[in-house]
Nucleic acid binder design. Structure first.
Lengths: 163, 163
DNA sequence: CGAAATTGGTATCAGATGTTACTATTTTCT
DNA sequence: AGAAAATAGTAACATCTGATACCAATTTCG
């Protein structure tokens, strides 16, 4: 199961994160701690797009994609945002209903829908992004450069181990 | 906002995690990556308690607490599990309805409910915990001891910065 | 070609979740 | 003491989310 090549002794993942005998201390349990942290972070970021701009988490993700890819087939959005097709459908509808995005059928294949930001949507995007980036910077700012580097690597490793 | 004392240069949290100009690349955006990872981990762990033992995430958390604190007022459960009082109420009801936990009114204050595991509940707990711990060990096993240590510290730092 | 299978997207319904308001009990304060 | 406020827990409703089935357009293949 995806062992990394590095040299590791017996104690390995032990100190500070893993558990001992047959007891499970929820507060120390890594999956719980991670879920909790992610929720905190998610909430902090949601202040930006939800409270200030009334977007759902899914809409925000789609918007983030549209900001970079000015025109995209909705079927491509799912993989990029980790949303299933129903969530994408709803998010895009939500954006459209508020004049943020527009949909049109693909000429070649009329099943597909192509989404793009409206001018208003683009303006919204440009307004939100700085706040979102600021939040991220604020957060990562509490870490040293070294810690940030390790964190990045660790997240990649864990993610890879799970796929 | 909670600057750590370490010496850090301009690049700081940059390399590998943070963003540049006014563009936001969702795939690289830390809050998104974290949410995604947490979801993956959560799913992997849910296999243990959900698929194998038909518990919801909330019930699992309450069970984990009850395994350590054999008798506890439900009002204490919320803070320990990061669930709101309604979630606790439902989770405990769920556990009770399946003979895993039992409730009784506190003698001194008859508003409070005291929850405890039934013998069947305790047996279930003992059956699940090893699997849950194994999952955790498997995951953390892909990290070096050093990485695990940094990860632990980083999670504490981030969590603290957000509270 | 044309029936069958596939694909993109959505309607629809069921179950989960969040919110508000309410009951019961206890505490506080005059 | 006893009215008012606070606390623990839940009912009830509204909303969100997930799963299934479905429609329309396209592709595959006999």
């Amino acid at each position: 199961m995806g062992r990394s090549g590095e040299a590791r002794d017996r104690e390995t993942a032990g100190r500070g994160t893993a558990q001992d005998g047959g007891e499970l201390e929820l507060q120390q349990y890594f999956p719980y701690r991670l879920a909790r942290l992610a929720e905190q972070v998610s909430l902090a970021v949601a202040e930006v797009y939800s409270e200030r701009f009334a977007l759902t988490r899914q809409e925000w993700r789609v918007l983030a994609i549209l900001g970079v890819r000015p025109e995209i087939a909705t079927k491509e959005i799912g993989p990029l945002t980790t949303l299933d097709k129903m969530q994408v459908s709803r998010a895009v509808q939500g954006l459209e209903s508020r004049g943020i995005a527009s949909r049109k059928h693909h000429a070649g294949d009329r099943r597909e829908l192509i989404v793009a930001l409206t001018p208003a949507g683009r303006a919204l995007y440009r307004k939100i992004v700085p706040f979102a980036l600021a939040r991220e910077a604020e957060l990562l700012g509490v870490l040293t450069a070294e810690e940030a580097k390790v964190l990045d690597r660790v997240m990649h490793k864990l993610s890879a181990a799970l796929s």
